[in-house]
Amino acid sequence: MAGITDLGVGIGWRSEIDLTVERLPGVDFVEVVAENLHIGHLPESVTLLLERGIPVLPHAVSLSLGGADEVDLKRVQHLGEIAEAVGAPMVSDHVCFVRAGGLDSGHLMPVPRTKDALDVLVANVRLAQRNLPVPLALENVAALLEWPDGELSEGQFLAELVERTDCWLLVDVANLYANARNIGTDPERFLDEIPLERLAYVHVAGGEQHGDVYHDTHAHAVLPEVLGVLDELCSRVRPPGVLLERDDNYPSDTEIASELAAIRAVVDKHRG
């Protein structure tokens, strides 16, 4: 498959806002959290969106591809089955680990940017790819802490990953912004280092500054600074798709629509 063709602007489908997503103007595609869906009984709303011809992309959060253990094939299989059920052109998860030492962090933890971690990640990604019916895109996460002794920058790490696995990239600009705020990484350098021709699509989300920490909550409005990172990205490459993620504190339909419109305005600015 040669890239993903023009997805447009989309929003993360969540059961709480299913009717809102259906009603919103200008939703070209949606993403569903794969773990929340079950084969055999897709939500009515998702079926309806599919009938309208809206692409539905499964997004996984639990593969723990960056974890030390071999990837859990049952989880991979579920993701693949969801992809087939919704006829998705692509699936995604994160460059992270969620489980280790018998514990579950409940969140997407950054991996150390070492050769060890990269080798393990590559092995896990390859195994997942072999067991998936469609291409896999991997997303950069937001980190609140930095592993010591990193051998590569985040951009270099992801570039290596793409090089060795031929995976796609899902770039979360809010996470880039969060990392810039919290651990001092440079979004522009990241964008310089990653292979932009392997960009599948982009995530945009809101967050909140809390003291000296920026929290990527997906429960607050998208900051202008995050749209600024999107702008920076769009000045380098035309992203096949840009998707708004909102997971909590859902505002009114109008407010969500205006966030989508703001995203579209940034994307369109570079199209002219």
Binding site: R14, E16, L108, A205, T217, D248
Partner: peptide, 19 residues
């Protein structure tokens, strides 16, 4: 809604731990 065995969770997203 949601839950799932997913590590990331409840509301289903990947958002961080809030405030």
């Amino acid at each position: 809604c949601s839950s799932s065995g997913s590590s990331c969770g409840g509301g289903g997203g990947c958002g961080g731990g809030g405030g």
